[in-house]
């Protein structure tokens, strides 16, 4: 798993993908930092994450769409799948590499926090809870993006399916209140209030595990169907 994790992280930064992802996210963060924090003269760093989280909908596919689709298209999938590594460790390696990029991104956002510290004392606990929630939401999103990438050899299709799915879950509550528990992004709103929302955490983790398993099963099945 570590070998794959290491190589995938390296690949993110050998290609522009890692920089594009982090750069885009931080650019949007800057906008939201100004609109949601500075504009109100607020000390609440976490406020910008309400808006920043929605950005994930559009940029997570940048990280995930190539994961398996590209390997399949180029044929390097054969190198990976015929190595003594298990499918589980391959999937986890790729998953954690993408999660690692999110962690790096979160660390970068601490720069905004540092700015706030120059003018006052923001609530560290709330900040940490927000970052935790953001990480969990990202993991759930990445697990779905990875699954989408495992079902096709076309990166674009994988990307579009992923964005489509995120948008649908985003707007589910608009159709019926009952569907709110399925809307990953709306669940996130609890975290910036400083609340460790257990129910939401469990949902994110369950969702991630489910799609990681689904990816493993898909790849396993491809061996016998292909």
């Amino acid at each position: 798993m570590w070998a794959i994790l290491k190589k995938e992280v390296k690949s993110y930064f050998l290609s522009p993908i890692g920089y594009v992802f982090i750069g885009l996210f931080l650019a949007m963060c800057s906008v939201f930092f100004y609109l949601d924090v500075v504009n109100y003269g607020s000390m609440q760093f976490e406020n910008m994450f309400y808006s920043s989280a929605t950005v994930l909908t559009f940029i997570v596919p940048i990280l995930t769409m190539r994961m398996f689709a590209e390997e399949r298209k180029v044929g390097t999938e054969q190198l990976l799948m015929t190595s003594p590594r298990s499918i589980t460790s391959i999937v986890l390696g790729k998953f954690l590499a993408a999660v690692f990029i999110i962690v790096i991104t979160e660390i970068c956002t601490l720069a905004y926090l540092a700015i706030l510290f120059m003018f006052g004392t923001p609530q560290i606990k709330t900040v940490l809870v927000t970052l935790l929630g953001f990480l969990m939401l990202s993991m759930a999103y990445i697990s779905f993006g990875m699954f989408a990438s495992s079902i096709t050899e076309n990166q674009i299709i994988a990307g579009v399916v992923t964005i489509g799915f995120f948008i649908i879950t985003w707007f589910l509550p608009n159709f019926s209140e009952l569907l709110t528990p399925l809307s990953l992004i709306n669940m996130f709103d609890k975290f910036p209030s400083g609340l460790i929302a257990l129910e939401e955490l469990v949902t994110y983790i369950t969702f991630s595990v489910f799609f990681i398993l689904l990816t493993i099963i898909t790849l396993q099945r491809k061996k016998s169907v292909k």
Binding site: G75, T76, T82
Partner: peptide, 14 residues
Amino acid sequence: IGYMPEGVPLYNDL
């Protein structure tokens, strides 16, 4: 097993 697949797929960015 050491396998050299058809069409020599490689990681181009390495």
